[in-house]
Amino acid sequence: MRVRLEDVAVGQIVSGVGFTAGHGEVVGVVGPNGSGKSTTLRCVYRALAPTAGLVLLDDRELRAVPRTESARAMAALTQDGHVEFDFTVDEVVAMGRLPHKTTFQRDDEHDRVVCREALERLGVGHLAARSFLTLSGGERQRVLIARALAQQPEVLVLDEPTNHLDVKHQLDVLALVRGLGLTVLTALHDLNLAASYCDRVVVLSGGRVVADGSPAEVLTPDLVRDVFGVRAHVVAHPVSGVPQLLFDHLEEPRGR
């Protein structure tokens, strides 16, 4: 399934944003703080309605698709922080089945298997009976991704999926996401992770798209200097060969 944004604008925050995530493509959305990454993604997972422009799921306009239907096609990891009630991990993941069920339908064997598989895939199967609130930040993040997978979506939208994760789990989660074969749209802070795991990188700055292409095309020292205000040196990863960035201050800080 393909996701396409055309000239999306939200108030003063984002304007004229357009790019496409093709079927099965992993697209990273990067940019400095306040560049409109989350706002753009929120338009895709329908928490915000764009004030102008279109979001298309394949060739259908998203706002014309019933919410339950789009929730069966597209799952998201959001930045909702605080949970007030003591759900178990099992219960949290089972929420992913919501768009697949009618009001009076109960969870059946199939639902339980889907949820169990999602938990196992994220390596948190052993936490199933635990209280969600007692988990560490990284465990919570993985459980929430498992819930998104339990929706059995074709499109996955991830807002900073590596937040709170240690290095190993950052790599594990992104490798897993890549291996799913889904269309993935993910906001990432870490440019090196974006370079390693994304097919394409879209760079936002000041609410506009300033670059869109393969990591090697896009993540150049010039762009990093213009957009992020730091000096970058590009080196090839010694094993995978993907471009990786080493950062430095633009100017020598005083007192060094």
Binding site: R46, A47, A75, T78, G81, F87, G96, P99
Partner: peptide, 14 residues
């Protein structure tokens, strides 16, 4: 259940 996880989460669940 979905609503108690947050409005955005509830939205993504349809």
């Amino acid at each position: 259940n979905a609503l108690s996880m947050g409005d955005e989460t509830a939205t993504t669940l349809g």
